[in-house]
Design a protein around this nucleic acid. Structure first.
Lengths: 148, 148
DNA sequence: TATTGTTATACTCTATAACTATA
DNA sequence: TATAGTTATAGAGTATAACAATA
């Protein structure tokens, strides 16, 4: 395929497919966690908390502002899923999952993964897809920072 | 890989990659069309208008509400890019691109495709990726409708 | 009675700016 | 002076509900 027009057309189709899958993945995630009663943005935050971390680190992980994280952590704390512990730097608050938080996090993680579209691909296909996506992302040029 | 835990973990990685790509793609799209001065949501609508169609059909294409489309079309009409023509069913308004709309639509389409990450893949890789995505789409189970 | 498009309004998610306490 | 977290506020994007005209 050396025809530039065809190349553009195929690129558009592919981009649309990829974005469509990502939207589908988001919808599937929401559907998978819905039975657990935790709003989607809180669930995303909970899943980031594999290890204890300061709030600013969670903000980085979610690519969002610290001020937004305050609200997220409020929600998780109200539900008894995380606690704010003082750090050695006294400006910092360390987020730690409670036992309930650890348990729910595991459930959400499994539910989300099991409900994922990509679970339907064969091992081989998943490996191929992952390699392609990494190649796509990994190119040096255009290291644009993803904002929220 | 028969270990279910590893499978879940890989699935999560893949989903994250996919969603990350989509966010990147949206940012790239916005960057590509920025020079043309049309807000992103108007650009998306314009690109949907390959053929004349009623407003409700544009709403379907964009997976959004008819009431939102009213505002989008207002914006496109103010800019002289589309016109509302009466349909044979007199409840319906048919959206038609003006010559300026056709011209801008072509420019935006090319600019967006050229700026796409997918353009960086080799022909071979793009073909592989497309095949994978189509296979992912084609599975019978779970025909969930994508909402906004 | 159901549907198209419109209007007015409300909601969700997220950011910005200003503030406090610490470093 | 710079940074972590908080508060209050604002904005973008989009939906819901009620409506008029038409089917």
């Amino acid at each position: 395929m050396t025809d530039p027009d065809a190349r553009l057309a195929e690129t558009r189709r592919l981009s649309a497919l990829l974005v469509g899958y990502a939207e589908r993945a988001k919808a599937d995630f929401a559907a998978a966690i819905a039975p657990y009663g935790l709003p989607v943005h809180l669930a995303r935050a909970l899943l980031m908390l594999e290890k204890p971390m300061p709030q600013f680190e969670l903000a980085e992980g979610l690519s969002c502002d610290r001020s937004y994280v305050t609200g997220l952590v409020d929600g998780l704390e109200e539900r008894g899923l995380v606690s704010r512990a003082p750090g050695s730097d006294r400006r910092v608050k360390i987020l730690k999952l409670t036992p309930a938080g650890v348990a729910l996090r595991a459930q959400l993680g499994s539910a989300a993964a099991e409900n994922s579209l990509v679970m339907r691909l064969s091992d081989q296909d998943r490996a191929t897809l992952e390699a392609l996506l990494i190649r796509l992302a990994g190119e040096p040029e255009g290291e644009v920072d993803l904002s929220c």
